[in-house]
Amino acid sequence: MSDALSECGAAAVTFEDDADQPIYEPDVGETPLWTATRLTALFDAETRSEDVTKMLANVMDEVPHFKVEAVEDKDWEREWMANFQPIQFGERLWICPSWHQPPAPEAVNILLDPGLAFGTGTHATTALCLNWLDTADLTGKYVIDYGCGSGILAIAAALLGAEKVIAVDTDPQALEATRANAKRNGVEIEAYLPGECPDEPCDLLLANILAGPLQTLAPRFANLCKPAADIVLSGILQTQADAVSDSYGAWFAMQAATQKEDWIRLSGQRHVK
């Protein structure tokens, strides 16, 4: 259907859930669709819907039910920018898009625009980690942000006083985004693919990824943490929290979970031998 709409001249085709059926963590290599999937195709205003349906009928056995809506002509860049406002986390930490003046210039302000890598502060998992960082004393600490995305947590740690910050991600594009965002915020962050990450144990390890990878990486994270080091884990659904916490129990004293919406943050301290 998507290919057929593109052949008919659609400028963009979007897949959306049409039955409130969340897909949180697909298996590696899979791109699942919802049981009920809604497609939205965007056409030039001059396109006639009758012409599109005729073309669809030529390339498909059956044209599904559809409706046509006229989209108001707007300055879409400004509309998009208006959706992103400065957000406060805790008492001293703000995320500010570049087109806004920081509401609290004396606060710790992270200048961050929405981009190709995950992490702008709007998602509950990121907010959970930022709220934890806001309460922490990071002065002189060595911090690893594992699964860095945009670098938001690594940058926050650096601005909050960490002496050394390393960012790790499997996506080279995320590493580029992290380096660019770190430069914009005037902090120094080393960014690595997982196989290149130094083995030097850290004082704090942050990992906002998904439950499956978090469980798999538990031994690796234990080796990357000093005795008494803190670990902060997110990207975990409420139903997954106990299993993830149990995965870390051999190495960390895990604390009670903190919840925001459907998402959980786990934290703990590395056992002292």
Results as ranks from 00 to 15, higher is better:
M1W: 10
D3L: 13
D3T: 09
D3G: 12
A4W: 04
L5P: 03
L5G: 05
S6D: 07
C8H: 04
A11M: 12
V13L: 04
V13S: 05
P26K: 05
P26L: 05
E30I: 11
T31H: 13
L33H: 13
W34F: 13
T40H: 05
F43D: 03
T47C: 15
E50I: 10
E50D: 14
D51E: 12
T53F: 07
T53M: 11
M55A: 15
H65V: 12
V68M: 10
E72A: 15
E72T: 13
E72F: 10
W76R: 09
R92I: 04
P97D: 02
L111G: 06
A117G: 09
A117V: 06
G121D: 02
A127S: 13
A127Y: 00
D134P: 01
A136T: 06
D137V: 13
G140D: 11
G147E: 04
S150G: 09
L153T: 03
A156L: 00
E163L: 15
V168N: 10
P172F: 01
A174K: 02
E176V: 12
A177T: 09
R179G: 07
G186Y: 08
P194T: 09
G195L: 11
C197M: 15
C197F: 06
P201G: 11
P213Q: 08
N223M: 15
A229K: 04
A229H: 04
L233V: 02
G235F: 01
L237Q: 02
Q238K: 14
Q240V: 01
A241V: 07
A241W: 00
Y248C: 01
W263E: 01
